[in-house]
Design a protein around this nucleic acid. Structure first.
Length: 803
DNA sequence: CTGAGGGCTGTTTTT
DNA sequence: CAGCCCTCAG
């Protein structure tokens, strides 16, 4: 397979796909065969490059069906589709999220992993419910974990690509008995319900690709040109999938930005992008560093902040736009005042002629939206919120969806349990327990068991009658030929009596629920119109995989509220980032681990770089936490942004007018050495290095000098808070043993090698490459359960009989 | 079997 | 503070 040479220069300039592109963008667009990595800073025209390249490939004769573009969010996929459609109308290129693409494959090859093609997708609620059930049935573990923790840990393990079968054998001797017992049980339950959770969608596909070489080869050849967006956010499972599809035809184009990696908590492995060149030695690497989005001031703030990440390769970001307004940094008295301050600022700007759609308010945690909403509503500012609970999460809607899922997949026992007594039919705890026991004994699905006359004999007369009736009714729904989803939803809602029950209530809340059910019918009818061949599967899949970000309408004349995570990939003329406080951003749960702390910093970096013209940063001196007002601490990140690019305002009342101008000093005073620290050893970090990405990480520098002087100021910068000191006899041992390459043991992950050590004794951050799990993790040594090991060879698991 | 009320817990980000 | 689970009375 000859690699195509680049076209001569004049051909480039004549190429319609290169109009208005800079040299690097052009290079990426014209790249045809072979692996390509585009490292793209924020606002550098990445999406443009990807879509132009697709157009370029098509015009060079590549068939649309051979192109596959994978994104993380539906929003990104839709945007890409839209832009490709503008360039090349009606090109049937496959563009979608990883999850959706995997569902597509899995529907076809479900049998290979023990599912049928009508398998259900369990959402967060379902999986949590399942974990509850599992703990209920395994009471001996219910003290050592909670359902949500169990769920979280299973998901974590899955995102590392570890199957239930592998987990038990790998970890049998490692002491994680809870997961060892319950992960396989969880998985069996999914299988019994003919269901997959979100992680499974990926994991099953990866498994299929690994275990079916012929199929892998076919798919590899079918998808000749693969593009992966946000490659820094791929986890090992996604990596395995992409890798498997680009063996024979390694025309893989990955785009991403390590500085925008914000999904580490979900198992994203930044090494995927860092080691791209190792995986594909012939890869071409293109860097897009010119920013077309933000003003220099905004960019300076972003750059100054992200420069504080130590595990990073510095990157040049530049722009040619004019300076623009300084970035605003405001402290408010409390979160109410902050919300009001933001609203007032919006009002003023609206009066000056701005339009509401230009604004975005970004925050760390979704619950922060509530106060903001109230404030905006009071002033009549139109807003749209990208929030966690959607229409489809409402109880009554989920109830009806449960009927639909049960009809689609009669083994969906969770759905059956959910609707057993909805609407009320006199089937309570007793009937439920007998049903479950019976189904267990006879190895039947709950639906099948509910129709069994043997079970009916075990129930009270009214219960038996009610259950038989319900069973027959659902069977009838199942066997009725499909007239579309709309009529089906209507039948369920009406024939079950659910709608009547709600309508007849005098509780206003229930009447509203009835209205929601009407709306659901409407939604289903509309779905039928828009997707004549969609069917029940399509309807349910859309609900399972689409979230609220997709309902976000960028053209609507409203202020956008969303989390920092949801904001990735978007841009707005005017951006507010609120609540930049210690324990919130960085989040409390991210502070013990340097890697997680860096991820929080990247999160703020992402937020900052959404702004085109105006950026407003703020925090509150007090905030409601667990029902009580607490005094907050300014985020350490605020100390890290370049002082000369921001304009500080003190809008809080705790400081008298005389002190107002000193707010800036209050924040920064005595911290210049922290802010400036990284300029000292600049030549190494700023050294040009065009080739290898692997030098991105790690640049291990000495930790910033820690001040011994007590802070003089009222706002306590978190960076100065002393870490808890280590006490006890372990200390000497721990310090002596801590060396690169030495072996340590973790109670859960087993033995591993120290591959990175940073920081100073009270709080050293160590990264351990685990031999058994095959993955690396970073810990604060002093706080972790890691212990030095005498074993020289980590390849061999320690023998428990000896230990 | 149902509904109300008390106690407990947990508390980020998302496909 | 909120949401969930369990208990208890009807």
């Amino acid at each position: 397979m000859a690699r195509q040479a680049l076209p001569p220069f004049d051909e480039r300039s004549n190429n319609p796909w290169c109009d208005g592109l800079n040299a690097q963008q052009t290079e990426a667009v014209l790249h045809r065969d072979g692996p390509l990595l585009v490292v793209a800073g924020p606002g550098s025209g990445k999406t443009r490059v990807v879509t132009y390249r697709i157009a370029q490939l098509l015009s060079a004769g590549v068939r649309p069906s051979q192109i596959l573009a994978l994104t993380f969010t539906n929003k990104a996929a839709d945007e890409m589709k839209r832009r490709v459609a503008t360039l090349v109308p009606e090109a049937a290129v496959t563009i979608g999220t990883f999850h959706r693409f995997c569902v597509l494959l899995l529907r076809r090859y479900a049998r290979l992993v023990g599912l049928t093609e009508t398998f259900s997708i369990f959402d967060a609620d379902d999986t949590l419910q399942l974990c509850r059930e599992i703990l209920k049935q395994n009471p001996k573990y219910s003290l050592s974990t909670t359902p949500s923790e169990l769920l979280h840990r299973i998901s974590h393990v899955k995102s590392k690509g570890i199957l239930a079968s592998e987990f038990s054998s790998r970890h049998a001797d490692q002491g994680d008995f809870v997961l060892e017992a319950l992960y396989p049980e969880y998985q069996q339950n999914l299988l019994r319900c003919n269901a997959a959770d979100f992680d499974d969608l990926l994991l099953h596909v990866a498994t299929i690709l690994r275990s079916s070489p012929d199929l892998r080869r076919d798919l590899d050849s079918r998808y000749r040109y693969i593009m992966v967006d946000e490659y820094q956010d791929t986890n090992v499972v996604q990596y395995a999938i992409v890798r498997a599809l680009s063996v024979d035809h390694p025309n893989l184009a990955a785009t991403g930005d390590p500085d925008q990696s914000i999904y580490g908590w979900r198992g994203a492995d930044i090494r995927n992008i860092l080691e791209f060149e190792k995986d594909y030695p012939s890869a071409k690497v293109v860097r897009l560093e010119q920013n077309y989005r933000s003003t220099p001031n905004i960019l300076k703030v972003a750059d100054g902040l992200i420069a504080h990440n130590r595990f990073r390769k510095p990157k040049l970001l530049f722009t040619e736009t004019s300076a623009g307004a300084p970035v605003s940094l405001t402290v408010f008295q409390d979160h109410f005042a902050e919300a009001d301050g933001v609203s007032e600022r919006i009002i003023q700007t609206l009066h000056a002629g701005a339009s509401a759609r230009e604004f975005a308010i970004l925050y760390r945690a979704s619950h922060q939206s509530r106060i903001l909403e109230q404030s905006l509503r009071r002033r009549g500012i139109p807003y749209q919120i990208v929030r966690g609970t959607s229409f489809f999460q409402r109880k009554e809607v989920k109830d009806v969806l449960a009927y639909l899922q049960l009809i689609q997949n009669e083994r969906h026992d969770l759905c059956f349990l959910r609707i057993l007594n909805i609407p009320r039919r006199g089937l309570g705890h007793v009937a439920q327990r007998r049903l479950q026991n019976f189904a267990e004994q006879q190895v039947l699905s709950l639906l099948a068991a509910s129709g069994d006359t043997e079970l009916h004999r075990q129930l009270s007369k009214p219960a038996a009658k009610s259950m038989a009736r319900m069973h027959d009714w659902i069977r009838n729904l199942q066997s009725t030929p499909s007239q579309g989803v709309g009529p089906l939803v209507r039948r369920i809602v009406e024939e079950s009596g659910y709608l009547d029950q709600l309508r007849g209530s005098n509780v206003p809340e229930e009447v509203e629920r009835a209205e929601n059910l009407e709306e659901l019918i409407g939604d289903a009818v509309e779905f039928d119109l828009q997707h004549p061949d969609g069917g029940l599967d399509g309807f349910l899949e859309r609900i399972a995989l689409i979230n609220d970000v997709d309902a976000w309408d960028p053209t609507s004349e409203r202020v956008t509220l969303m989390t920092l995570h949801a904001a990735k990939g978007l841009e707005f003329p005017r951006v507010f980032v609120v609540g930049i406080e210690h324990d919130l951003l960085p989040h409390r749960r991210s502070q013990d681990d340097e890697m997680q702390l860096e991820e929080e910093r990247r999160l703020l970096f992402v937020g900052i770089t959404r702004a085109e013209q105006e950026l407003y940063l703020s925090f509150a001196r007090q905030r409601m936490q667990n029902g009580s007002m607490r005094t907050t601490i300014a985020s350490q990140f605020l100390l890290e942004i370049p002082r000369e690019s921001v304009l500080c305002h003190d809008a809080s009342v705790s400081v008298g007018p005389a002190d107002r101008e000193s707010f800036e000093e209050e924040l920064w005073d005595g911290h210049d050495e922290i802010c400036l620290d990284h300029d000292g050893d600049g030549d190494e970090e700023c050294a040009e290095d065009d080739s290898a990405l692997d030098t991105y990480v790690p640049i291990v520098r000495p930790a910033p000098p820690r001040d011994t002087e007590p802070p003089r100021t009222k706002i306590e910068p978190a960076a100065r808070l002393d870490p808890p000191s280590l006490s006890g006899p372990d200390r000497a041992i721990q310090e002596a043993e801590l060396r690169l390459g030495s072996t340590v043991v973790h109670p859960d992950y087993g033995p591993g090698k120290l591959i990175r050590i940073t920081g100073q004794p009270p709080r050293r951050s160590v990264t351990v490459q685990f031999a058994l799990a095959g993955s690396a993790q970073t810990f604060i040594w002093e706080l972790s359960p890691l212990r030095p090991s005498r074993a020289a060879n980590v390849a061999e698991p320690p023998d428990p009989r000896r230990g």
